[in-house]
Design a protein around this nucleic acid. Structure first.
Lengths: 155, 155
DNA sequence: TGATTTACCTGTACGATACAGCTATCTGGG
DNA sequence: CCCAGATAGCTGTATCGTACAGGTAAATCA
């Protein structure tokens, strides 16, 4: 193995380690932070509302495909969200099999509150960082997600 | 709100978004990739072995504290690992209540195999990236984890 | 030495998820 | 126009990771 290959290997190993650690810490942070105030919206519900807000009302299948989740999972999560009045189901006028999921005002408001709380949390966590570093972090995460997503869709 | 505050806010929002997305994609990737070959070692087991390998044999409580997990969770995971012959429990000679957990050779080998597979996976995912970008990504993730960890411990 | 703390385990519960199988609906080739 | 297959969504069931509460045994401290 040449030196180049080796340093590449080391970097990949570091990335692997850090991503694993981030998933773990992220979970822990969510648990620790969430319980008090914005556990009112668990992880899955939050991403669903985020996506509906950003991409507009859509049916369960589209949601599932976009979020890399099984349809049954989304069905249940949507049911819970509906029970809590955070989304509404309307029959799809163009397809009798489908139902269109849209966020309710309450859902959007709840989502925004959680989002704001999380943003504040990151402000706290990254308090000592420069603007440049924060930008770089955001860019790198974005590019990593793109790469991961591309890979997931390819398979 | 001044402009500066606003752009800061935007960046924090991006970071929040990207971390949430990464957690989701990471899970999806783990599920998709894992089933075939290295589902032989689920997420929790892998981090435990990683930590034992890196920080040396230790008892359940220390492990739980380090991994931000409840003791009962670690107890069960350790039991599963022991059942599979990947770790060994020995009574703590210095404390009759404790048991020291150490990885077995089989455990280390299994861990290394998973690690290698994941490293390969990242090599695949980041195939188009320059060395510099990979380094930057690794650095940023590392710093983010440090910040998260510091914050978790503070609370 | 007795009270408190610590280390671990067990019972129980919950959330997130997948897969298999069901029904209702849609769609395209004869 | 009609039926065969595809698709959308739901329900049953199972698994994993996790937490919390409560129990027992050992350690420690006043």
């Amino acid at each position: 193995m040449r030196d180049d290959d080796n340093t590449e290997e080391v970097t990949l190993g570091r990335i692997e380690t850090e991503v694993a650690l981030l998933m773990r810490l992220g979970e822990a942070t969510r648990r620790a932070t969430g319980t008090a105030e914005h556990r009112v919206l668990d992880r899955a519900a939050y991403v669903i509302l985020r996506h509906l807000d950003q991409a507009g009302p859509q049916n369960v299948s589209a949601l599932a495909a976009r979020l890399n989740l099984d349809g049954s999972t989304v069905t249940r999560q949507v049911s819970a969200l509906q029970r809590d009045g955070l989304i509404a189901r309307t029959p799809d006028p163009a397809d009798g099999r489908g139902t269109v999921i849209s966020p309710t005002p309450a859902g959007l408001q709840r989502m925004a509150a959680v989002r704001a709380a999380r943003t504040r949390l990151y402000g706290d966590i990254l308090a000592g960082w420069t603007s440049d570093d924060r930008d770089t972090l955001a860019d790198m995460l974005h590019r990593l997600n793109e790469a991961l997503d591309a890979r997931n869709r390819r398979r």
